[in-house]
Design a binder for these strands. Structure first.
Lengths: 207, 207
DNA sequence: CGTAACTTTGAAATAGCTCAAAAATTGTGG
DNA sequence: CCACAATTTTTGAGCTATTTCAAAGTTACG
């Protein structure tokens, strides 16, 4: 399956989605048309596990690139979780890790400069893509436009552009043609003051 | 029990906390001392249910007033959830509702003006306090300082002060001496463009 | 009644926004 | 493979919401 369409909020869902390839965002759209991306999902992510519990989504699922999805029906999820309580705890854990990332983004949205926020986002994506084997020495592919990035960061695309220029001029990272090329990982990490604790990387391995 | 202290992040937890009276926040503190409150909890809230799953908190639990807490040990939670799978789903649902609020705050932090954000926060608290019988016709008690509010909104306390003045001058709401007095609920709601969908009020009732 | 915490105000600085246009890139059909 | 349209990126100039810094009021409280 392959799309770049809205999965609308406010509608009863009967299945959840696992992302197999490509990128999708969870996006909230305001009455005036402004958008906020609350999370970017990578291959391997359970994109809307929460709809199993909430049934109705409070946001849209928007494809950022072509992607392959697997649908898991809620009735299947119910059977799985009833038969294997252990898996219920695993899914619940995933929900919690997801929420931890939302909290971290709140901090970035509220407290950080544009430069630090962009740097942080690239740090997070670099680490998460590394977990699923989608980064290489030089960086990673990220098929977003600067406008997508702006919707994610709570900034204007104009300002994102200028911020990217600054990161480039400081020889930290270059974002061009859907690719993030990291020139100075330590420098990037340091300007972002990036601390991946909230990703619970060690505890994920337990599961 | 009664405190106004930090419940530190980064430490192994063996119990979760239910708030019986008073207000607590979940707060993330940056290296430079800046703070972001990612959620305000009211009586009745399961404050750190996620520590049952994550074990280590990614943020601090900070009392905003004197409060009474009930501790539920993780071993007790494990027994409860093993004996009653239905309750596991309830807890998981609560985790999801919690996360939905974090996402909504991301939108507010990223996209809204100071005026609309303050108004939105008051709208949310008014509704949530109403659910637990802690609001009256005129408004509700909120024992926070303007600095607390600033940490929550991602603004300076100076700017929060000026924004509160504007809301007061527009005869929408007055925040003084730990009390939010709502003069014009419809006006407040409208300037906030407040939509409580993300609170999943209807679905909570099912449980 | 004195001290600490909190609120209010003013003035100047700035990060990020808006508007508008030009340049570059990407995609498409012929 | 080219030409053209659409999308995306880049830049400039002026503007505004919010911050910073600093000081004066006010309130709470031991």
């Amino acid at each position: 399956m392959c799309w770049r369409r809205h999965h609308p909020s406010g509608q009863e869902q009967s299945s959840s989605t696992v992302l197999l390839s490509g990128f999708v965002s969870r996006t909230k759209i305001l009455p005036d048309g402004k958008k906020q991306i609350t999370q970017i999902h990578l291959p391997g992510d359970f994109v809307d596990l929460q709809s199993f519990s909430l049934k109705v989504l409070d946001h849209d699922i928007v494809g950022l690139s072509d992607c392959d999805l697997a649908l898991v029906s809620h009735s299947a999820l119910r059977h799985i979780t009833e038969a294997h309580p252990h898996l219920t705890r695993v899914y619940w854990f995933l929900t919690n890790v997801d929420a931890a990332a939302n909290r971290e983004w709140e901090v970035w949205l509220g407290q950080r400069s544009a430069l630090a926020w962009v740097a942080s986002l690239f740090c997070e994506l670099n680490i998460r893509l590394g977990l699923v084997g989608l980064k290489d020495d030089g960086g990673f592919d990220l098929p977003l436009t600067q406008t997508d990035l702006a919707d994610c960061l709570g900034l204007t695309s104009v300002h994102v552009n200028r911020t990217l220029r600054e990161l480039r001029e400081r020889s930290l990272v270059t974002f061009r043609a859907g690719r993030v090329a990291i020139q100075d990982w330590e420098g990037l990490r340091s300007i972002a003051e990036y601390d991946p604790t909230y990703l619970y990387l060690d505890r994920r391995a337990d599961r």
